[in-house]
Design a binder for these strands. Structure first.
Lengths: 138, 138
DNA sequence: GAACCCTCTTGGACTTAGTCCAAATCCAGC
DNA sequence: GCTGGATTTGGACTAAGTCCAAGAGGGTTC
């Protein structure tokens, strides 16, 4: 993730302790954290970091394309540090667990021109829903 | 939509003025309304209906499978009365407009067993993102 | 067609997720 | 080291939705 810090510096980011911590948290575990989870992990490393800063930094990372926002219909948005490898999500309808998956086809190709209504379509987001092995066993 | 009312009665629903109004609102315009928009349209027909009732009724319709919850990453969930014809959504990244679309392939088939991690996958939700003609012109 | 039971509705308080802002802080270039 | 302007802070605020106890009103029964 020092790569990430480099890239950010290259884009004119002023490097602060807070931003470094947020980046470290995202890099540390490749799970899909909510903003609040990022915040509490960040507080563990830098007690005086504020919620507002975490939101700011996450927002900036998203608009730079370094991190993806995922909204599987749960309450809170989640942040996915795996932005550079395109992938989709598999969500357990019961416990909310999320896994990254890599399907074979390209769903963009499945949308014929007649179904585009003049839109310039640039992106697809696919969410598979089902029951995870844990919940199925219970 | 009297069909819908029939189906609901058949499932043991007590038919009240409030529920009828919510069903009418959803049937009236085939757009994707937020709960609040449903509420304000319902108030126009039945001034004393409360927000809690609208939320309750929408939740019941969703769990009966008569209406779909759509969460394109905007703030609020939207409700899609078109639950009986499977379809996906095309969302304008700028103005948030939503259109129903019917792609050709079946994305479920694109997820190989090796990418299912033991999940019992039952559903896919596909959201295409782009810029609508209106916003592109502006 | 009156009475009753039980489901629905109400409205207001509460929760959760996130945004905003003015004042204080602190990075980076000189 | 100083300084200017970008960042951070924390607390108030907003939006969306949930919860609950009390009251209302469907529909069934006689």
């Amino acid at each position: 993730m020092s790569d990430l810090l480099e890239r950010l510096r290259g884009r004119g980011w002023r490097m602060t302790a807070q931003r470094r911590v947020v980046a470290e948290v995202l890099d540390g575990e490749h799970v899909h954290l909510t903003a609040d989870e990022v915040h509490s992990r960040a507080v563990a490393k830098l007690p005086e970091i504020s919620r507002a800063t975490v939101y700011n930094t996450l927002g900036e990372l998203v608009s730079l394309g370094e991190v993806l926002e995922v909204s599987t219909d749960k309450r809170a948005k989640r942040y996915d540090p795996n932005a550079h490898r395109p992938h989709h999500h598999l969500v357990c309808a019961q416990c909310g667990a999320i896994r990254d998956v890599h399907p074979s086809g390209n769903p963009l190709a499945d949308l014929p021109d007649t179904e585009r209504f003049g839109f310039t379509v640039s992106d697809v987001e696919v969410t598979y829903r089902g029951i995870c092995p844990n919940c199925a066993a219970a």
